Amino acid sequence: MMFKGKGGAMLRTAAVILIGASLAACQSSTDGLNVSQSKTDNSDLEKVTFEELRGYCPKVRLRDGTAYFNTYEGEETSQNVRYQAAITDVSRQCKYENGRLAMTVAVAGRVLLGPKGSSGTIQLPIRVAALKGDTVVYSDIKPYSVEVNTAGATQFIYTDPNIAVDQPDARNIVIFAGFDEGPKKGAATN
């Protein structure tokens, strides 16, 4: 429908006003979310502290050479690989409690069978460490069991929920995660 001339401009204006009024009439205070009814009892939820709200949670990093782990049958050659594990992601969660920073670190990855591999349970040596400057304030290494099969890659998620350090006065904590067999057998220790 075309409105031409001076009368057409008035009709177009009237049509726009009429459409706008129609749309406004479709809106009512009972449509959508009623705020007074949406209140829930949050008494069972944990309260967020100011420190947590600030959001400082140390980053998790991988050191060079710790993202991959191979096991061999005999000599360390590509033909003798039993299992090859790789860390694909790391994450962390932080909480401030009683003047301490409590952290949970998660390490995700996958394991592939090599030419000499077979289905079964393997142990992955995973270490999580926290450093404040050059000082180690937390370190733990655990063998983590993973059930591998011959149907492609096996995914795993390792979690260390036990990290607790004094509440930092600066953003000076670094978390490292990775594979670590510890000292080599026969190696001298201090």
Rank of each mutant, 00 (worst) to 15 (best):
161 P>S: 08
76 E>V: 04
138 Y>F: 02
153 A>Y: 11
63 R>S: 08
38 S>A: 15
165 V>W: 06
97 E>Q: 15
146 V>I: 13
161 P>L: 05
91 S>R: 12
73 E>K: 01
10 M>T: 01
30 T>P: 00
129 A>M: 11
34 N>H: 12
170 A>P: 05
66 T>D: 00
36 S>W: 14
67 A>N: 14
173 I>W: 02
123 Q>P: 02
10 M>Y: 03
47 K>Q: 14
112 L>N: 10
136 V>K: 15
104 T>W: 04
27 Q>T: 09
117 G>T: 05
2 M>L: 14
163 I>Q: 07
9 A>N: 01
11 L>Q: 09
179 F>T: 00
179 F>R: 04
150 T>Y: 09
176 F>V: 06
59 K>L: 12
90 V>Q: 04
157 I>Q: 11
143 P>E: 14
76 E>T: 04
26 C>S: 13
151 A>F: 08
68 Y>V: 07
179 F>W: 04
79 Q>C: 04
153 A>V: 10
75 E>G: 05
115 P>S: 14
151 A>C: 07
154 T>N: 11
16 V>W: 02
184 K>D: 14
74 G>W: 02
135 T>N: 15
130 A>H: 01
111 V>E: 09
89 D>W: 03
70 N>I: 00
95 K>V: 05
74 G>Q: 04
60 V>I: 10
81 V>C: 00
71 T>D: 08
75 E>R: 02
118 S>D: 01
188 A>F: 09
47 K>H: 08
136 V>I: 12
134 D>E: 10
130 A>E: 02
42 N>L: 14
40 T>W: 11
93 Q>C: 05
146 V>D: 12
21 A>G: 15
35 V>R: 09
180 D>L: 06
121 T>N: 04
2 M>V: 14
30 T>N: 12
171 R>E: 07
55 G>V: 06
121 T>W: 01
115 P>G: 12
